[in-house]
Design a protein around this nucleic acid. Structure first.
Lengths: 338, 338
DNA sequence: AGCTTTCATGGAACCGGTTCCATGCTGGCC
DNA sequence: GGCCAGCATGGAACCGGTTCCATGAAAGCT
């Protein structure tokens, strides 16, 4: 509708002056600035970001790649990213790229290649060297959330340490017969979270002098996934462990429900610990190792904005802390025979 | 990096010809087209959408407003929107606007007002007449999902009918003492889903000659919300109904867990029905009235694309069907005394 | 007083595409 | 053979901003 030329005409100044007045860059007298702003308001002028980005190269828009939207961790990260970006004046364009998505190449080569974004945030999608190079050639900063990407600042938790901590909690309560239920390597998400959590579990067990053979069971990373696995695993009393370390809270919820259904009391007969800090954990009284996805999202935005400002790429990766929240899904194992 | 002028030079043609060859509009000989395409590929040319939209007015990008990301219904709609838009070659820019968000005005007046979107999809956010006018003045088509917006094509289910159907299912099993647990009007989402589902419930009850006074209890629209309400409601055996109609599956899950915890057998002593068709319903064996959020998202995109193509605004609102999925959380009430 | 900064503003080029218009060529038709 | 339609292409204007450069006035310095 109305262009900056109209504003300039109405205010009786040149386009250049109007542009300076509205953007705040360059010299403009207070008087002129007020006149221009008044004129802009009068005709309801809104700047076209397209025209501006054409010449500045800045789009005030960030692309976000994420494999899931409805899983808790990703939903939380997404909400915090959106909020933080909006606050900084950036639009967020979303690409949902499930593992092994056929759209993946198209998104990278077509959608992300266009100069539409000032930067890109990849949540839980590990990028190949080729993809990183591709994006770097565009000169756009890149920030990862959820795991390391070669040469790219990322925000993550230490999955190995978190898993070890969770396992050590069970060990410290006196459990010896512990099982880990986590994601399979086959449908591993990009960032090795599954195998890292498994490694942390094994490290803790081995350090306690325990064997880890036969102590891992895979499950889908959801509540029904944990439930299914729980029914199968806990159904046979002779093979039943005294404690389970679940790779996610949602799996843990499913396990707890399966235990209840089988008449196994938690924590008396079975302790369960998860990783996440899911808001439903309170309701299930689940002991969990909380990570803080919203903090990860906010930090990712801060990191990206800093890269954008400095153009120096000094960005370091950051490992955020986790916190053990003890509720009543874990306790010392029942003494045999009681 | 490389502009269309470079492609044209390399191919030995004019910019205009290169543009026609790459966009497929206007006359170009097959020979020339191949030459241009080869040149473009050689230097890795990717068109700048900014430059193109500056002159065409088309941005190939759609803005989506949504109040929640992590609630099931919204997550599903979002995923289907993203997928369908990508397929049509559109980017999706996301604005997360919780009820009573302080950012709301800013999003409408600043972010959406810029000519950055070809169209806007509003999911579960009812727009005021003023906001609709504001967006219409931009000449951008608008599609709603989840409830009617004046003068705007929307995709929705009939919440009143769905609630009535769910209630009638309980009535047909022989229940007379039925309670509705739903969202409160106070934190009503924009589209009157809460009050519509309550109205449908009341209509069914009244049609069966039953009183509705004292038959409604509010809960947060989440599993813990249903759980809390369930503990309070079912704790007193004398006030306990024989069946509950929950306004969402997540509330229903919470109710079922509360019942289990109180030793109330479902469905023998208590029938529960929900609305949604949540994937976890299978695990809880929940009878539910399924709506199909992905279908709603896909249809919203089809509607928007049609509006975009015709510019005629013929778009009609569509009411999508729901389907009753009977599982084993509902049965005839136990005969008194057994 | 004369010279250099600093401030304020306007004119024009430019970002990278699309599209209008003009031109020239070829071929079908009467 | 002459005319018109259809095809193919190039030149130039244009979309709506930003920014470089030039100009000039006011203020600071010696």
């Amino acid at each position: 509708m109305s262009a900056i030329a109209d504003v300039a005409r109405l205010a009786g100044v040149a386009k250049a002056t109007a542009s300076r007045a509205l953007s705040g860059r360059g010299y403009v007298s207070t008087e002129t600035r007020d006149k221009v702003i008044a004129a802009a308001r009068e005709i309801g002028y809104v700047a076209s970001p397209n025209a501006a980005s054409l010449v500045t190269g800045r789009t005030q828009s960030v692309g976000v790649i994420i494999p899931f939207i409805s899983r808790w961790f990703f939903g939380e990260v997404l909400e915090s990213l959106e909020f933080a970006l909006l606050e900084q004046g950036y639009d967020m364009t979303l690409y949902n790229l499930p593992p092994a998505s056929p759209e993946r190449d198209r998104v990278f080569e077509f959608f992300l290649a266009r100069k539409r974004f000032d930067g890109i945030i990849s949540v839980g999608v590990a990028l190949s060297e080729q993809e990183v190079d591709h994006l770097h050639r565009l000169g756009r900063p890149l920030v990862g959330v959820g795991g390391p990407i070669r040469g790219v600042p990322t925000i993550e938790i230490d999955d190995v340490a978190a898993a070890r901590l969770a396992t050590e909690h069970l060990l410290s309560l006196g459990h010896r017969d512990i099982v880990h239920v986590g994601g399979s390597q086959v449908d591993e998400m990009d960032f090795h979270v599954h195998s890292n959590r498994l490694r942390g579990f094994q490290a803790a067990m081995l350090a306690a002098g325990l064997s880890v053979s036969g102590c891992f069971y895979s499950a889908e990373f959801t509540m029904p996934g944990g439930y299914e696995r729980g029914l199968a695993l806990l159904g046979d009393p002779r093979r039943r462990p005294t404690a389970i370390f679940a790779a996610s809270d949602e799996i843990a919820f499913g396990l707890i429900l399966a235990a209840r259904e089988l008449g196994i009391r938690v924590p008396t007969e079975l302790s369960v610990i998860g990783i996440d800090g899911h808001p439903h954990a309170e309701m299930f009284r689940l002991t969990t190792l909380a990570q803080h996805p919203r903090a990860q999202g906010e930090l990712a935005v801060r990191t990206l904005v800093a890269e954008l400002a400095s153009r120096s790429g000094t960005g370091e990766s950051t490992v955020l802390p986790t916190s053990l929240i003890i509720r009543s899904s874990t306790s010392a194992p029942r003494v045999r025979g009681t």
